[in-house]
Design a protein around this nucleic acid. Structure first.
Length: 631
RNA sequence: GCCCCGGUAGCUCAGCAGGACAGAGCAGCCGCCUCCUAAGCGGCAGGUCGCAGGUUCGAAUCCUGCCCGGGGCGCCA
């Protein structure tokens, strides 16, 4: 039954036409007849943009000669071929036009390819398959790649800063009520990598962490600290079910005690007398809320703020420290409370009102979100006069849109997907363009150890913190593992694999390639030789081996990878690319000696080795993984 | 009930702005260190792309329905 050969499909072979590129039409200005995507980089390093240009010129010529009647631009794909036999790039322009013009695709392909300007970067163009134009990069172009990489260094692959729009990226934004856990870690790694990628692709990027320092959870945290403080002071107060039990609460309480002594101490009876009983569910909620009210009453404004402020400062400092060690930085930590004091909150509500999107019902103020694409209307001011969390969101959104003229990018955990229609509705309600908002939802990460799911529960306090994870597997492995899968995909994080220093760990595989490169240059020196780039460049035609050619092509692809990964908000694309690049280097390393006698060959190879090292460093840097010199 | 994400090789996943024979890593089997780190390399084997329709010259990729798994739907934060 399990036949082997019979399942194979018959080979489909298409006749190929080879068109020599001899004609040149210098007078053809760039035409707007071909569009791929807006804002394509014009850098000479971008082969696709270059090919687009060539095709545009050919079409422009054909149009002026009356051979084609083109009215509107055609949307075409210029893509990397999967099969080397198909050249380096393929374009489907003829097939797309065929549909529009009702002509045969191969016929059109002939027409177009005959008018393609000659180019030093393109060796030949073939017509193949149903009508693809296959472009073969010239050896000259491939060699140019090494020179460019060595000349540009850490700038290779980067578009000029500001060549694209501004992006304000908000990520992590975990409530400062406890340490970050592994779920936040994924958002942090994704956000940091994506931000770096966007910056490399030419966007001006600012990174923000929205600190939820306003709500009930913060009050619970403050009270938790106070209760631990009382405990340390010798009061025997029962700790409520819903309060924060983590060890870190004691640390903060100790700090408060050091600073304020017994000033905040009250007798146990004064604290709990007359409060509703603690218990499960509803009872626990009522109890803790009453306790918060009691704390405010006994401590007064200043005393309460002492606990609250200490808790907030400690938590934010801890989170900042944790993320900093993880290589995750922010340009701004935006306080939710500041929205009220700055008047941003009131202004946002006024704006919604002015635009006519607010109404009163049951004593509360509602936003007509349902008329703007959300499933239901949302309360902005509660019956008790307090604004809702959503109101803060609207105010922060308005603030962001006013500060950043480009895109506001939200990175949410997948459980926040309900916020998307609500915030878009808010943007519309404010009279702003919802297209300026970009939402990326990061799916959950599940830890596996010994092939078993690591159980996590916040209540029992048995969750794994980001810090613990980092200490267990290391920052490099954690950063890489977090972004190696698409963020839209649930992530199975294999702790054993991440820790493994065996041949199966993709992080070490890539880092090892870099370490080997460094080692090659150490060897060179120990043999009393020096790398001469100029000699290598002059002899770059000696890089004609199969492995060398493959490596050159892959290195040349890097700028496109950056561009595409940024556009698709997909750092995992870069992670995969780096793995592939490392694989090609390892294969070459095993196949050939680099430190050969021949000065020309040796230096040419060393140029390629150095260029590979540079690209590995650049790419690893963007995803926050170190590039070690030795392992 | 409504909404979001996913279902591709034994496992974990790429590929999905439609395209040329479906890819990688791990696990399995067979090989490679007098030579720049074997944390490496070469080879073999492994797939009804969840199921059924539809759109198209062409569908893993787009549309519809269904099945399975994960998550979300508060005048909480």
């Amino acid at each position: 039954m399990a036949g082997t050969g019979c399942r194979r499909r018959p080979e489909r072979r298409h006749q190929r036409h080879v068109i020599a590129l001899t004609s040149n039409y210098p007078e053809c200005a760039r035409s707007a007849l071909v569009t791929i995507a807006p804002e394509r980089s014009r850098s000479p390093l971008f082969m696709r943009a270059y090919i687009e240009e060539l095709i545009g010129q050919a079409l422009g010529y054909l149009k002026r000669e009356g051979e084609l009647s083109l009215e509107e631009p055609v949307q075409v794909h210029i893509e990397r071929t999967r099969d080397r036999a198909h050249g380096d790039y393929a374009c489907n322009v003829a097939m797309v036009l065929a549909r529009k013009l009702g002509r045969k695709p191969r016929e059109l392909a002939e027409l177009i390819s005959a008018k393609l300007p000659a180019s030093k970067r393109i060796d030949k163009v073939e017509i193949a398959g149903p009508g693809f134009l296959n472009f073969f990069a010239s050896p000259h172009y491939l060699r140019m790649v090494v020179r460019d990489i060595l000349a540009l260094g850490d700038q290779y692959g980067c578009a000029p800063e500001g060549s694209r729009g501004e992006v304000l990226v908000e990520y992590v934004s975990a409530n400062p009520t406890g340490p970050l856990h592994v779920g936040h870690g994924r958002g942090a790694a994704y956000g940091a990598s994506l931000s770096a990628l966007l910056a490399a692709a030419g966007h001006r990027v600012s990174r923000e962490y929205y600190v939820n320092d306003h709500g009930r959870q913060m009050d619970i945290l403050a009270v938790s600290v106070w209760l631990r403080y009382l405990e340390l002071a010798g009061e025997r107060v029962r700790f409520p079910a819903n309060a924060y039990r983590g060890e870190y609460i004691y640390d903060i309480a100790r700090e408060v005690r050091e600073r304020h002594g017994d000033k905040l101490r009250h007798a146990e009876s004064a604290v709990v007398d007359g409060l509703p009983e603690d218990g499960d569910g509803q009872a626990a909620e009522l109890h803790i809320d009453a306790l918060i009210a009691r704390a405010r009453q006994l401590l007064g404004e200043d005393g309460y703020e002492a606990c609250f402020g200490a808790a907030l400062d400690a938590m934010v400092a801890d989170i900042r420290d944790d993320l900093g060690q993880f290589g995750v930085q922010f340009d701004r930590w935006f306080s939710e409370r500041s929205l009220e004091s700055s008047g941003a909150l009131a202004r946002a509500i006024e704006r919604l009102d002015r635009e006519g999107w607010l109404y009163l019902k049951d004593g509360a103020t509602w936003f007509k979100a349902s008329e703007l694409g959300d499933d239901k209307d949302r309360v902005v001011v509660r019956e008790n006069g307090r604004t809702t969390y959503f109101a803060s969101d609207v105010a922060y959104l308005l603030d962001k849109l006013e500060r950043c003229p480009g895109t506001s990018l939200y990175i949410f955990g997948a459980d926040h997907h309900g916020y998307v229609p609500r915030l878009k509705a808010a943007a519309r309600g404010l009279g702003e363009d919802p297209e300026r908002l970009d939402f990326q939802l990061v799916q959950f990460a599940v830890l596996f150890r010994g092939g078993r799911k690591v159980q996590m529960s916040t209540r029992s306090g048995s969750f794994v913190t980001l810090r613990e994870l980092r200490e267990e597997v290391g920052n490099d492995a954690a950063r890489y593992f977090y972004v190696m899968r698409s963020h839209e995909q649930h992530l199975d994080f294999d702790l054993d694999l991440a820790k493994s220093s065996a041949n199966d760990n993709p992080v070490y595989y890539i880092q090892y390639a870099h370490a080997r490169i460094a080692s090659v240059f150490r060897q060179l020196e120990s043999r009393g030789l020096r790398h001469n780039q100029a000699i290598g460049e002059a002899a770059s035609d000696r890089l004609d081996g199969e492995h060398e050619q493959a490596l050159l092509r892959t290195l040349g692809r890097y700028p496109e990878v950056i561009e595409g990964a940024a556009e698709r908000r997909a750092p995992h694309v870069l992670a995969h690319y780096l793995h592939e690049l490392a694989a090609e280097f390892h294969a070459w390393y095993n196949h050939s000696q680099f430190l050969v006698e021949d000065d020309d060959v040796r230096n040419a190879r060393l140029n390629l080795v150095a260029a590979t090292g540079q690209v590995l460093r650049n790419g690893l840097g963007l995803i926050g993984v170190s590039a070690p010199e030795d392992m």
